[in-house]
Design a binder for these strands. Structure first.
Length: 370
DNA sequence: CGCTGGACAAGGCACCTATA
DNA sequence: TATAGGTGCCTTGTCCAGCG
């Protein structure tokens, strides 16, 4: 029986002619190869591989690695179900993930073992998802990546096979294209007069639809020109739900002086006296908030007339943000006005405004005859 | 019968926080 | 500063009921 001592590990020839290898691990424990080897060089190869793991700091006791291999053959389906069940997320997000799993992810991967989900497999799957729905595609990809990231953290996978660059980022489809002051006037005039103030407040003060729909007489201070945005309405099926504005940010927005008259006339003509009377109530029920589809129906006609057939109601808010920036508001001031929490959101409008400013400067030069 | 307000589901965009 | 992981809300398309 020979026993060759080496600089890493030991190889021992057994009586039956096979070779056995073992070494002392970083954990100071004794680790033997799971089986003996036919040749000495096979044993050496095993030792070299173990040593590389230690050097790369990827080593773990062989026993637990075997457990890992077993778990890696676990099917994706059950793993994903457990992942979703254990996640602490909002009901709404859970429902979203459920749909995405059922429609896009499980049909492709449910039966596969985690180990068999390789980057090429993911790539092939990714290209099979409708690219004309980029937001959905990015979201679904993100979800798969998040689940497999958990498998990495669980030490089931060494690396996440979702390696497509930027695939999880949903780019905005349309550039921010605010309405000009002239277009705002046209849009307003093309709407029924009970919505004039709606358009003008959205465009010049940048309120969200849900904030406008929940505005009440008491929120408007004609004297100081302030609109207090304290609440917003959302819809749970057919029931209006009143809460704080998105991000929980209450704020007060100054009306530009030129719109105060329109707003004040609106209060006189269309709003009931009590301070909790809605500015834009549902038709036929003054206690109920207007439904977005009701405004939209008129909006679609108005935007055609204004030559902006693709403009959405929410784009009026963008308009408000860009106009503020154009008027010289700093990013911080724009944030406060719009109720943003992050500077990035405000900066987007600042950029658009800078582009506009350059346009205006160019027009001025034209006027001057250059 | 066309118009209007409204319900509803699904998709998309806006915007956030944490973290590397 | 970029990316990942979440969450909220708006838009779109379609269908339906009530009404003049």
């Amino acid at each position: 029986m020979t026993r060759a001592k080496r600089d890493f590990g030991t190889i021992r020839k057994r009586a039956n002619g096979r070779y056995q290898a073992y070494y002392m691990g970083p954990d100071q424990g004794f680790h033997r190869a799971p089986s003996t080897f036919q040749t000495k060089s096979d044993a050496e190869g095993w030792l070299a591989a173990e040593r590389r793991l230690i050097q790369n700091d990827e080593w773990s006791p062989a026993k637990s690695r075997r457990a890992k291999v077993r778990r890696a053959t676990e099917a994706f389906g059950p793993y994903a179900e457990a992942w979703l069940a254990q996640r602490e997320i909002k009901q709404r997000t859970r429902a979203l993930y459920r749909r995405q799993l059922d429609r896009f992810i499980l049909p492709a991967f449910a039966e596969m073992s985690l180990r068999d989900i390789t980057p090429p497999v993911v790539r092939t799957w990714y290209t099979s998802i409708d690219p004309t729905r980029p937001t959905q595609r990015a979201h679904v990809y993100s979800l798969l990546r998040a689940i497999l990231n958990e498998a990495v953290r669980d030490d089931i996978l060494a690396k996440n096979p979702c390696t497509i660059r930027s695939a999880g980022i949903a780019k905005r489809q349309r550039p921010i294209d605010p309405a000009s002051p002239e277009e705002i006037v046209t849009l307003m005039n093309e709407m029924p007069d009970r919505y004039w103030a709606f358009v003008i407040i959205a465009a010049w003060c940048g309120l969200r639809f849900g904030e406008l729909a929940e505005l009440r007489r008491g929120d408007i201070d004609v004297k100081t020109g302030l609109i207090h945005v304290r609440r917003a309405v959302t819809w749970d099926h057919s029931t209006p739900v009143v809460g704080t504005p998105k991000n929980g940010q209450q704020r007060s927005v100054s009306m530009p002086p030129h719109i105060v008259d329109v707003v004040s006339a609106h209060l006189d003509r269309f709003v009931e006296r009590p301070s909790d009377a809605l500015l834009f109530p549902a038709v036929g029920d003054s206690t109920r908030q207007i439904h977005s589809n009701t405004v939209r129906r008129h909006w679609i006609k108005a935007r055609e007339a204004a030559g902006r057939p693709h403009m959405r109601i929410h784009d009026l808010r963008h308009t408000g943000a860009v106009l503020a920036a154009l008027a010289g508001a700093t990013p911080k001031e724009t944030m406060d006005r719009l109720g943003h929490l992050s500077a990035e959101a405000a900066m987007r409008y600042q950029h658009v405004a800078r582009g506009r400013d350059a346009e205006i400067a160019a027009k001025l030069s034209e006027l001057a005859g250059y």
